[in-house]
Design a protein around this nucleic acid. Structure first.
Lengths: 213, 213
DNA sequence: TAACTGACTGACTGGTCAGTCATAAAATAC
DNA sequence: GTATTTTATGACTGACCAGTCAGTCAGTTA
């Protein structure tokens, strides 16, 4: 994706032995942005707020990011990039398909319980943008497609082994994905009623039962 | 839209005895707000835009709503109020539980295909607010709880009749709800991959299969 | 020690927009 | 017909904030 960061402009051919601070700063600013955006939302978060949170001045933000939009976009990339690598990290060993799907879910759920709680507000902030921002559209689409591409083979394998009845693999993959994302959503609706871990587990169990041969 | 302006003026000339205009105006403004908010989002939608869409002037908006926030809140009420009545309208006749759940889902899905398409962007706009606005929190929570309160008895009934195996009714209800909301969400992620009607149906089928005694 | 450089700063500017209000027109009452 | 009230208008204002830029400073380098 287009790198909106400006800092590379300063890099000359033969860099003198000077610690390149720009990567550190970029990360520092993005982390501050994540926190402030989560707390205030994209609009009410002022560049000043982010700068303060990063212990920098407003002007410095503009040394590393062209404008507020570029900062938001960079955060989008960072978010989905880490999510993607989480998805791909899931081992594809030779276990029963049901078990592999379980582990698949558990890995993602663990992430939710860990880092995601701090970024869920930002994710839903992005979701509100999805209808009018092609970059955001692309990120979410890519996320879904990666998930599907990874889970369909597991389901197909399960069918081939006679572990599952011959469901449509894509339909099953989407059902599993929908159950996951939907449970998360319902938790956002009402954290008191929904226990993410428990209800993803129980819903998942019913679904797998429905797929069993 | 311009035509509406004309007819409205004509209607005004032929005033019935006591035409309480305020209810009509309120609805007129809310509908305009829904459209503009869906297109631009809460922040970028200017009061002027909404006024123009409603064929009124900005000042008039402030005769009916205290400020922009009040307008947004009123829209929230209107949205969830109609959703609630949709939920409650579902017949509770004496059919097999699976069939009643089917009809439950189909009713909501039909709504989605109809009016929801125009309000989904607004719903997700509200979702972004849920973390920092208690009113929005309350609305979503109420929605979930109503859904649960309505679907649990059906599931309990299905278990009592021996139609379903003894799953936890609330867990099953949440799984069904999550599947529904999640599929909608995945459709937003990637409308090309997900066919709302088909995939809600197929996911639902797997879930019900997993509940069968 | 003087010149240079890259990193950073924050006061300032220009544009935007929610909300106000003086004015007016239409509807109704008298 | 005139008075009163209800409804509507849109120019105006003040707050707000993204983005700019002239200037500071801590290290180099010569």
């Amino acid at each position: 994706m287009t790198d909106q960061s400006v800092s590379y402009l300063h890099r000359k051919l033969a860099m003198p032995p000077k610690p390149d601070v720009s990567e550190k700063r970029t990360a520092q600013i993005l982390e501050a942005a994540r926190e402030v955006f989560a707390r205030k939302g994209f609009h009410k978060a002022r560049m000043e707020d982010i700068a303060a949170r990063a212990n920098l001045s407003k002007g410095t933000l503009y040394l590393y990011f062209k404008n507020k939009d570029a900062l938001i976009t960079a955060l989008l990339d960072r978010l989905f990039q880490s999510e993607m690598s989480d998805l791909r990290a899931i081992q594809q060993e030779d276990a029963p398909a049901a078990e592999r799907l379980w582990r698949f879910m558990e890995t993602i759920t663990a992430d939710v319980q860990g880092s995601w709680m701090g970024i869920l507000p930002v994710v839903y902030e992005f979701l509100a943008l999805i209808f009018r921002n092609p970059l955001v559209q692309k990120a979410f689409r890519q996320y879904l497609r990666t998930y599907i591409a990874l889970s369909i083979p597991i389901i197909e394998d399960g069918i081939a082994r006679g572990e599952f009845r011959p469901v449509d693999p894509q339909e099953a993959a989407l059902a599993l994905g929908a159950l996951f994302e939907g449970t998360l959503l319902l938790w956002v609706y009402d954290p008191e009623t929904v226990d993410v871990e428990r209800h993803i587990r129980s819903g998942f169990q019913i679904l797998l039962e429905g797929m069993r041969a």
